[in-house]
Design a protein around this nucleic acid. Structure first.
Length: 259
DNA sequence: ATGGCCTACGTAGTAGGA
């Protein structure tokens, strides 16, 4: 089962690039971030015509997440628990069943800039809620994948120019500590289980020729529970998508699970 | 050459992103 994450930076703007990638990569399950669309305006038919079931959690103008799946999407849940006053559309869950049932948790973690400040406080509070959800997923002792745009650069080797990000909300010590608190509960960073060393990125800024100069950062991640990690066969970043026509500033990242 | 973006909303110029 091929499970992917892709921050598309606007579903309307990606009406050509996203189907092109789907037809090339043939993922079974995709979590999308930054659909920047309300549920009613989401072009479901584009995906249903390709055999995907579609569940969205959108809002007007920005944010918004969705799940596409060739398997039925069961027990769908929208919103990260822990704050009923949070109306930002950043979290969606569902269960898909191939050979095994897999809980899919798709996220668009807050950016948090400028830091410090209220947006950074929101990011850290959101990550505290994420940790609580992560603990519950581990306690279930079932295969689960938390994947999406984490807006976290885990280590210096995950940025081409780490010194440029030192005080940024994506790389500040508190951000990395919060991410490691989640990972260290017992999750596997799927990409780092398969690849070592610097030079692996999932985001390149539109500005300043960042793609041409390979000035990237690795901020899209798939964290696996132990039961999911046991099924891991492969993990890859589809970086070639960044060179296509009208690309997102992020590229897809995926795992292949024996499920 | 030390360069300089993209999207939604809405129809001009902000807000937000990373």
């Amino acid at each position: 089962m091929k499970i992917a994450s892709f921050n598309i930076n606007g579903i309307k703007a990606r009406a050509e690039a996203l189907p092109r990638w789907l037809d090339h990569a043939h993922p079974d399950v995709v979590v999308l971030q930054e659909i920047k669309s309300q549920d009613e305006a989401f072009p479901r038919e584009m995906f249903e015509d390709r055999g995907y079931n579609v569940e969205t959690h959108g809002q007007k103008g920005f944010n918004g997440v969705a799940i596409l799946s060739k398997f039925p999407l069961e027990d769908v849940s929208r919103g990260l628990p822990g704050d009923d006053g949070d109306d930002q559309a950043r979290w969606i869950e569902a269960t898909v069943t191939g050979k095994r049932a897999i809980r899919i948790c798709g996220m668009y973690l807050p950016n948090g800039n400028p830091a410090p400040g209220p947006k950074y406080d929101y990011k850290l509070a959101w990550m505290a809620r994420l940790e609580r959800r992560a603990r519950d997923l581990l306690a279930a002792e079932e295969p689960a994948v938390m994947l999406g745009d984490y807006n976290i650069i885990p280590q210096a080797e995950d940025a081409a120019r780490p010194e440029a990000w030192r005080e940024d909300a994506l790389f500040r010590l508190e951000s990395r500590e919060a991410f490691r608190r989640v990972v260290n509960l017992g999750f596997t960073d799927a990409f780092r289980a398969r690849h070592h060393g610097p030079g692996h990125y999932t985001f390149w800024d539109y500005q300043a020729g960042a793609w041409r100069r390979n000035d990237g950062i690795r901020i899209d991640h798939l964290l696996l529970t132990p039961q999911a990690a046991d099924l891991l066969r492969d993990c890859q970043i589809d970086s070639a998508e960044r060179a296509g026509d009208k690309p997102s500033d992020h590229v897809p990242i995926w795992v292949d699970l024996d499920a």
